[in-house]
């Protein structure tokens, strides 16, 4: 499994600001070719920080650890090397399509920009941009290519952003909360589009989200993050059937289900996630956990323990596994 990973992240930490607190604290995960990986967790759990640092896009963060793309180290690499990976091997889609496009440049310019930087003629790059817009489902692409971002709706803008990320035919597409800013109806269209593009191109997909419902249908494997740490990694099917960490269980309980009684409140996880720099001792989740035992509150943060289909960072893992059998 190790050797086939196209992206291998190892003990990645990201520090911000004066306090130098870790927003991401030593996370490790791999991504195989053609696979779809979901990274889920609450806001501030370090999802975005980790993927932006892999591409060297965090301007003022200190990044430690390792992230290798096809064996090439990206952490600490210079811009020259990173620019061979950015766009060409790894494409990026961001959360807010209203902020993701430069308001003063035509969408065609922005889609074709990476291609022109790698030596394509303007005409050829523009034709490719039209082709890409057609592919992501923007109607009358040959005219719209000359339109400005403000002339598109949110959903259409996100399609443009996806076309921009696909322009240089990358091997991995990383989408950071790609649907959070969109209508529910549009969310599905955008996710379907990304999934379909990944399948037809044999591209790996990383979807970052705080909404487990969003990724349940689209990912092969899911990583759950809490307070800068990975607390669980599981296959999609197993995650919903048999969560390995109380935090995952908590997240799943928050999802509305069919047949949900209208007199019943949706469940929530009480409390707030901790602030980096003010982390509790022991398991970082213990102040909010329903199953906290004295052992959870002391010592170091529990390590990730492998199980047959994934990993979990709960010290009561064995007890839960037994109970569920």
């Amino acid at each position: 499994m190790q050797s086939s990973n196209i992206l291998e992240v190892e003990s990645l930490s990201v520090r911000f600001g004066e306090s130098r607190a870790k927003a991401v604290d030593g996370i490790s995960f791999g991504l195989t070719k053609g696979e779809t990986l979901g990274i889920a967790g609450e806001s501030g759990s370090g999802k975005t920080a980790s993927i932006l640092s892999i591409l060297g896009l965090h301007q003022r963060a200190t990044v430690e650890g390792s992230a290798q793309f096809e064996g090439q180290e990206l952490i600490g690499a210079d811009n020259k090397l990173l620019n061979k990976i950015r766009g060409k091997r790894i494409g990026l889609v961001l959360q807010d399509p209203f902020a993701a496009l430069d308001p003063v440049k035509t969408v065609g310019h922005q889609i074709s920009e990476g291609l022109r930087a790698s030596g394509w003629s303007k005409k050829r790059a523009m034709n490719h941009a039209i082709h890409l817009l057609e592919e992501v489902g923007v109607p009358s692409a040959s005219q719209r290519v000359n339109a400005y971002p403000h002339q598109f709706s949110g959903g259409m803008r996100q399609r443009v952003v996806i076309a921009m990320a696909l322009a240089q035919d990358p091997d991995i597409l990383i989408a950071d909360e790609p649907t959070t800013a969109l209508d529910v109806r549009i969310q599905k269209q955008v996710l379907d589009l990304m999934k379909q593009q990944c399948e037809s191109r044999g591209m790996s997909l990383v979807i970052i989200t705080h909404d487990l419902g969003v990724i349940s249908n689209y990912t092969d494997r899911i990583v759950i993050m809490y307070a800068g740490k990975i607390v669980e990694e599981s296959s999609r099917l197993k995650l919903f059937d048999q969560p390995l960490h109380p935090y995952t269980q908590g997240l799943l309980d928050c999802l509305p289900t069919l047949g949900h009684s209208e007199n019943e409140y949706l469940k929530t996880i009480g409390g707030q996630p901790p602030i980096p720099g003010k982390l509790p001792s022991g398991c970082r989740y213990h102040p909010r956990c329903a199953f906290t035992e004295p052992a959870c509150t002391n010592g170091n943060n529990p390590p990730l323990v492998p199980v047959k289909w994934g990993r979990s960072a709960c010290i009561q893992l064995e007890k839960f596994l037994k109970e569920s059998q």
């Binding site: 932006l52 591409l55 896009l57 811009n79 990173l82 620019n83 061979k84 990976i85 950015r86 766009g87 060409k88 790894i90 494409g91 990026l92 961001l94 959360q95 807010d96 902020a99 993701a100 496009l101 430069d102 308001p103 003063v104 440049k105 922005q110 920009e113 990476g114 930087a117 790698s118 952003v161 921009m164 990320a165 322009a167 240089q168």
Partner: peptide, 23 residues
């Protein structure tokens, strides 16, 4: 965000700054 995304295309930092941030 559009500057971050411009960087994510692998264009030079000069182009990112002049074409997007300065423009």
């Amino acid at each position: 965000d559009y500057v971050t995304l411009a960087r994510s295309k692998g264009i030079s930092e000069y182009q990112v700054v002049v074409r997007h941030a300065l423009r």
